[in-house]
Nucleic acid binder design. Sequence first.
DNA 1: CGATGGTGCGGGTATATACCCGCACCCATG
DNA 2: CATGGGTGCGGGTATATACCCGCACCATCG
Lengths: 133, 133
Amino acid sequence: MPSDTCHCILLRKASRKLSSYYDEALAPLGVNIGQFSLLRNIHRLQPISLTELAAQVELDRSTVGRNTKVLERMGLVAISHGEDQREALISLSEEGKLLLKRGAPLWDGVQDEIEARLGAEKTRQLQELLVAL
Amino acid sequence: MPSDTCHCILLRKASRKLSSYYDEALAPLGVNIGQFSLLRNIHRLQPISLTELAAQVELDRSTVGRNTKVLERMGLVAISHGEDQREALISLSEEGKLLLKRGAPLWDGVQDEIEARLGAEKTRQLQELLVAL
DNA sequence: CGATGGTGCGGGTATATACCCGCACCCATG
DNA sequence: CATGGGTGCGGGTATATACCCGCACCATCG
């Protein structure tokens, strides 16, 4: 066992590499995998507050806030307010919905490619391992 | 197979979680796992130029430049220049060496803990999978 | 009805990470 | 020796990510 291979560093490298792989596939849409995933979550949960969304995607609230603002500037999400004036209600715009539709086959493609490269068994192992960490 | 679990997002979550885990262990030293790993690489390769170091750790040169500058401000690395005035030669300071010595058991501890949690077989699988990606 | 605590948000700061551009310097070729 | 390509570096910009702080608002308790 080459104990000098840091699990964490290896994982970070893999994360960067895989991210850029997904980013490349989604490039025609003008969003990266982080933004695409966030859009999908907003779609699933809308309308939703920043705090709740952050909890769902397991990211810091301020991170989600900034990322959401970028999506708003792009016209992909709309931020309105409910009865409680404090609460920001995030939902998809029409463009956002369209982007998700156009993105679905691209995302499926990468996903399938990964699974093909690893094989079904190793894909299952990967999911299991990542959850176990 | 829940095909809606994005491999990439799962990997990124795992990466963040594991990073914060290592960061916690290294907190007494005042460095994070990225900095610690960079220090270990500098130790292994010193004296080394920015460009060469970036290639070795598979990060962007500008990223390594900024990170190195932080380490320099901390007094952990020294940056000198060789005959070619352009080239920055990065090496560890005495404090840097000391930090690596003090950090080794902490790093080993986390590493062992991960392996214990996963078991030998799954640890091997993980390394294999991450390299395969 | 006023004080208090909980919750939601934005801003500030720091680091990580990437890309592009421009400057400096070295070396080879004419 | 002049010019030009290659290489090394820093700066600028953008996003991702986290933490802390302060402000606003709501609900509840006294």
